[in-house]
Amino acid sequence: MDAKVMLVDDEEMIRESVKVFFQSEGVGILTAASGDECLDHLEDGFRGVILMDVMMPDMDGWDTIRKIVENDLYEGNIIVMLTALGTPDNNMEGLQEYVTDYLTKPFNPDALMEILQYYFNLLGALEPVDGK
């Protein structure tokens, strides 16, 4: 199935467990272990909801978004930050309009699916569900 979600997280356990969850929901998902892999997927044509971990080595979630915007790869995507409680957000200046939502890990899978359904509708990726 076409991927509608990209999870960007340096922790393999998180990538694997989230992948299993989305596959069980019938939602196509790509994973990326770093900001660079995320950019590669975008250059290969991925467009959808990007779940972006904030704390990653080498290039954090904020700098990854900066690269996405600088390289004209933002359009057609919605970005949701994933953070652990207490994650600093002091590198986010100028990115407010590109970060549509912000979830704290561990997140509630059902709540996440409800939010994602809304974002898929916003992107026009799926048919609207009861007009909302």
Binding site: M81, Q96, E97, V99, T100, D101, Y102, I115, Y118, L122, K132
Partner: peptide
Amino acid sequence: VSTGGPIALKRLFAE
């Protein structure tokens, strides 16, 4: 409003 806004506004104005 900013991050988290689209869903929050939808919930607010639906009611």
